[in-house]
Design a protein around this nucleic acid. Structure first.
Lengths: 158, 158
DNA sequence: TATTGTTATACTCTATAACTATA
DNA sequence: TATAGTTATAGAGTATAACAATA
């Protein structure tokens, strides 16, 4: 005589995910990332998975504009985390690369963030960690697919 | 003769959570929040759960400084989303409040973000949604507890 | 004297517009 | 002429320092 289990509709999970994201931002907001500003950090993330991208594509991916992206690259180049290389095909295009120190810095930031989370998850029951892991794996897979689709449609419509 | 199930240590879940957060930021990064800037949005989030907070506490909670917080409040007040009210107890303190339009705007932003996520979760198997929901509930509970502890220790050490 | 909030200053971030070089 | 990238300009975000008012 028990009622059927709750349905867990997409919008229910969406609401909780949004709340989780807000909480996570509150936890991470305190973590310093000097000498890289909050605006510069996404540049490193994008470059990591898009080796040799040009400036316009970077700006599009950031949801920003070429002048802004150019300035961000200026600063990152100044601290040695980014490299501008002339394109072999087109003399007006620039290819962007993370330098070795840039990658090392990125790994540092991730490690710092993950340490924060590890401390948090240590206080969660092992079973909850397991189900969260399974759910997040599916989320990452779906989100990555969606982002990839968006990029494809962007380049078609551009 | 099967091996034991994977342990799902805290650091394993932390790594995946960090990746999920990066993906989520990439998905949400494109969502516009005008007339409120990315820096101003956290002010609204903080005020929502801390009605009547003063300016210094707001700055601390944001991980920012009083002058920066003051300027953010200037803009939010200018668009009518925030109110400064003199404290009845202390004539140098200011109490900050969300206005009714401020709350309405916050609900709008959340709805927009949740719509993005709902579309994404609709493409995930129902079972994955269920386990993600269970895992995120535990995460929100633990993260909220931690943030609350931090705030308590901050006010003790200040 | 210590605390709350603001203003002063200098630098970074952001977008639009104007410009240079290349295709 | 169209495109890639930069520079010019103006407004917003940030932090440190200096300041006014209050405790």
């Amino acid at each position: 005589m028990t009622s059927s289990p709750p349905p867990h509709e997409p919008d229910e999970v969406a609401r909780l995910t949004a709340r989780a994201a807000e909480l996570l931002e509150a936890v991470w907001g305190q973590t310093p990332t000097a000498p890289v500003s909050p605006s510069q950090l996404p540049v490193l993330f994008v470059l990591e998975h898009n080796e040799g991208i040009n400036l316009r594509t970077l700006a599009d991916t950031l949801g920003s504009t070429p002048p802004s992206a150019s300035r961000l690259c200026d600063r990152l180049q100044a601290v040695g985390f980014l490299e501008r290389a002339p394109s072999p095909n087109s003399r007006r295009e620039v290819h962007l690369y993370l330098t070795k120190p840039g990658r090392a810095f990125l790994a540092e930031v991730r490690a710092r963030r993950e340490r924060e989370l590890t401390a948090l998850f240590a206080r969660m029951p092992a079973h909850k960690r397991s189900v969260l892991l399974e759910g997040l794996e599916a989320f990452c897979w779906t989100a990555a697919a969606r982002i990839h689709e968006d990029q494809s449609s962007d380049s078609r419509s551009a």
